[in-house]
């Protein structure tokens, strides 16, 4: 069965591109425009095998979203990748502390993104 990826980003362009790349690679994609929406999608029954989230978002930012997801029993061990422009360690540390599995540094091309996803998502 196709794996489901929850893509969270407030930029529609970014979301579309990530979703397009994932769909082309055979994944199912659920999209959300911010952390709050993402939590809503999960509570509404979405069962992602992987979460890809932006950090800077209105309503609920990525770090808070990661913390929220880690609180959910079903998603306790689900890989979460954060998209970040900052190659800065601060952001990475904050993400790790919140429970993020890893990160993808923007800008990235589809191959780079798929490489990171393969790294954390069991085939």
């Amino acid at each position: 069965m196709a794996k489901t990826v929850l893509v969270v980003d407030d930029s529609p362009t970014m979301r579309q591109m990530v979703a397009f790349t994932l769909t082309s690679a055979g994944y199912q994609v659920v999209e959300a425009g911010n952390g709050k929406e993402a939590v809503g999608k999960v509570n509404g029954g979405a069962k992602p095998d992987l979460v890809v989230t932006d950090l800077n978002m209105p309503e609920m930012d990525g770090i808070t979203l990661i913390k929220e997801i880690r609180k959910m029993p079903a998603l306790k061990f689900t890989p979460i990748l954060m998209l970040t422009t900052e190659a800065s360690d601060d952001k990475k540390k904050a993400g790790q502390a919140a429970g993020a599995t890893g990160w993808i540094v923007k800008p990235f091309n589809p191959e780079q993104m798929m490489a990171v996803i393969k790294k954390v998502l069991p085939g």
Partner: peptide, 19 residues
């Protein structure tokens, strides 16, 4: 300020993606 920052941030991130 956050709103303005986010706008700039999104443009930066997206434009990098397209080179």
């Amino acid at each position: 300020l956050n709103r303005i920052f986010r706008g700039a941030h999104s443009i930066k991130g997206n434009s990098g993606m397209f080179g």
